[in-house]
């Protein structure tokens, strides 16, 4: 079983939910990232989504946009992001790592070269916000050959017919976008998310993680009651940005936040 599948299965078996956290690689400085990843893992984070900084992150809200800009100010490249994963893997072979970003970063490197480098670094999954399954063929097979999952998103506006088609291509887990909006938006409606997740369950055996708009222990707990995974990003990235002047304080701060989320979810 893949590392991703194992992380989801374990939590499901223990009656809890998988905690997925997002940070932008190199934000607010490249030296922070691996330490922050380790701190998150030690607080009970199961899956780390590592954002590939991109100049035009059109699906992101203001927090993650700012995170991308802070990372790009250090000229963080996709190659550097992969090196960070490799460094993290030297001390952690348990936590799953999923790269998340935009297609152009991967295309600039080339699908084959990227898949090879991601595999060597120890990447478990890839999410590309603006790559729909219809256009994903070559990258998907390049990743699949190396045991890396290409994770697709479903949204409140996705019709059931389309969801079925997307799910045929899906692997790893399903990322359900909980609201119409950008990352970090404030209009999460937990009841409608619960309903949709229940309906998606009848279409796929894959674990379903819910993200966008989950910002604290309380909202994480409510979502954990029905979702296999809870994704938290913007609030973490904002916190890291606020500590940009004292980067040495970041690992402890993200660890505290992750622990709060973990405890809230385990109490669900």
């Amino acid at each position: 079983m893949s590392r991703l599948a194992t992380r989801f299965a374990e939590r499901r078996d223990s009656g809890s939910s998988t905690l997925v956290t997002y940070l932008v690689a190199g934000d607010p400085a490249p030296s922070v990232t691996v330490a922050a990843m380790k701190a998150l893992a030690s607080a009970g984070v199961d899956v780390i989504e590592l954002g590939i900084p991109f100049s035009d992150p059109e699906a992101e809200g203001p927090d993650i946009q700012a995170g991308c800009e802070r990372a790009l100010a250090h000229r963080v490249r996709l190659r550097d992001v992969l090196d960070m994963v490799a460094t993290f893997r030297q001390s952690d072979t348990r936590t799953a790592v999923v790269l998340m970003g935009y297609l152009n970063s991967v295309e600039a490197m080339g699908s084959e070269r990227f898949a090879e480098a991601a595999s060597e670094a120890g990447v478990d999954g890839v999410i590309l916000v603006n790559l729909p399954p219809e256009e994903a063929g070559p990258l998907r097979s390049a990743l699949q050959q190396r045991g890396i999952d290409l994770v697709f998103l479903l949204a409140p506006t996705t019709t059931d017919a389309r969801a079925k088609r997307v799910l045929e291509q899906a692997s790893g887990f399903v990322y359900y976008v909980s609201l119409k909006g950008t990352t970090g938006a404030g209009n999460l409606d937990v009841d409608s998310v619960r309903e949709r997740v229940a309906s998606l369950r009848s279409m796929t055996p894959l674990p379903i993680a819910v993200g966008f708009g989950i910002r604290d222990g309380a909202s994480a707990r409510r979502v954990a009651q029905f979702a296999d995974g809870v994704v938290v990003g913007s609030v973490l990235v904002r916190g890291m940005g606020e500590l940009a002047a004292t980067p040495e304080a970041i690992p402890a701060a993200v660890e505290a936040l992750a622990r709060e989320l973990r405890e809230a979810m385990d109490a669900a």
Binding site: E58, N130, L153, A155, R162, G181
Partner: peptide, 18 residues
């Protein structure tokens, strides 16, 4: 599918596809 040879297409966040 909106392709002009290798160009064009529909590369957007899932929420907009519908």
């Amino acid at each position: 599918h909106g392709h002009f040879g290798r160009f064009g297409g529909r590369f957007v966040a899932e929420t907009l596809t519908h």
